[in-house]
């Protein structure tokens, strides 16, 4: 449509502002469960992949392998997204007084999400779960303190 094309050309000179459509308005709903479930799924997928036969895999084995890798990838990414939402939208500067290593913990969790996408390592998967659970405990403690 000509009007659409005209507007897009206009945007090249005057770039439009970005408007967010996802639930990004402070609604106060922050939970540890989505990131923890995603991390648990990564652990479970790694266990399933490692349990598959290494020699003479059947077509069914290969199918399971591909599906597990896909789910591991998706949930590692989901875990990263959920952890970063807690970091950017919930935790505030005052929480750093109680948890001075907060930024480092989130960074390490995000790094572990990427590593678990690249690797098939039960150790790395369990490390991710432990890190995410620790962040979840901080979240719950901060929320409990806020209610007092």
């Amino acid at each position: 449509m000509m009007l659409a094309q005209l507007l897009r050309n206009f945007d090249k000179i005057f770039p439009p502002q970005i408007a967010l459509a996802h639930c990004d308005v402070p609604c106060g709903i922050y939970k540890a469960e989505p990131s923890q479930t995603a991390a648990e799924t990564v652990v479970k997928m790694v266990e399933k992949i490692l349990a598959l036969p290494k020699e003479n895999p059947t077509a069914g084995d290969r199918n399971t392998f591909v599906r597990c890798v896909l789910v591991k990838e998706q949930h590692a990414e989901l875990c990263k997204k959920e952890v970063l939402i807690l970091w950017t939208d919930f935790f505030k500067s005052e929480h750093l007084q109680k948890w001075p290593n907060l930024h480092e913990m989130v960074w390490e969790a995000a790094k572990l999400c990427s590593e678990n996408k690249r690797e098939v390592s039960l150790e790395r998967a369990k490390e991710l779960l432990a890190k995410v659970e620790a962040i979840g405990e901080m979240l719950e403690e901060a929320q409990a303190a806020a209610k007092k």
């Binding site: 502002q17 970005i18 408007a19 967010l20 459509a21 990004d24 308005v25 402070p26």
Partner: peptide
């Protein structure tokens, strides 16, 4: 509508 809250724009 597009509205502004904090330093972000939203469309709802």
């Amino acid at each position: 509508i597009v509205f502004r809250k904090g330093n972000k724009n939203y469309i709802k």
